[in-house]
């Protein structure tokens, strides 16, 4: 029993780390689309522009100096900061993509997503409140 108590939090920690560390991907509560990790990755790499319910996607970023953005990009997109920047410069300078809207902090992201039905973003999971829905 003692063993179990010790290992359970450890396991939980490992499990959540293998998903998205402390990053929560959030959408508007009205959005009932199914989103896999690969769907989310495609959205944030500009490859996918619609949700499974057919609504067009508005994906938003935190500012590039954010640690949450770093871990989101590493774990979900599988790319480092400069790799993501290089990837997006390809899209931008060929007119294929527009840079995603950026917000200064988690609060701004949550406020935007709570008021925008087709928006998707990510924040530090400790900041999530009832105005948005966590999808991962």
């Amino acid at each position: 029993m003692k063993f179990f108590l010790k290992t359970a939090p450890l396991l939980a920690g490992l499990l959540s780390f293998s998903v998205f560390a402390d990053v929560a991907v959030i959408v508007n509560p009205s959005n009932n689309s199914e989103l896999s990790k690969s769907d989310i990755s495609k959205i944030f790499l500009g490859k996918s522009k619609t949700f499974s319910n057919g609504e067009s996607v508005v994906a938003v970023n935190l500012k590039s100096n954010s640690a949450t953005r770093d871990s989101f990009q590493k774990e979900v997109l599988g790319k480092s900061k400069s790799q993501v920047k290089a990837y997006w410069s390809k899209l931008i300078f060929t007119g294929k993509g527009k840079p995603l809207k950026e917000f200064n902090n988690d609060k701004e992201v949550i406020a935007f997503i709570a008021s925008t039905p087709n928006a998707i973003g990510y924040v530090d999971s400790s900041q999530v409140d009832g105005s948005v829905k966590v999808v991962n």
């Binding site: 920047k85 290089a86 990837y87 410069s89 390809k90 300078f93 060929t94 294929k96």
Partner: peptide, 10 residues
């Protein structure tokens, strides 16, 4: 080609 001059991208 598409981003030939964008040295940052390669």
């Amino acid at each position: 080609s598409d981003f030939l001059d964008v040295s940052y991208a390669y």
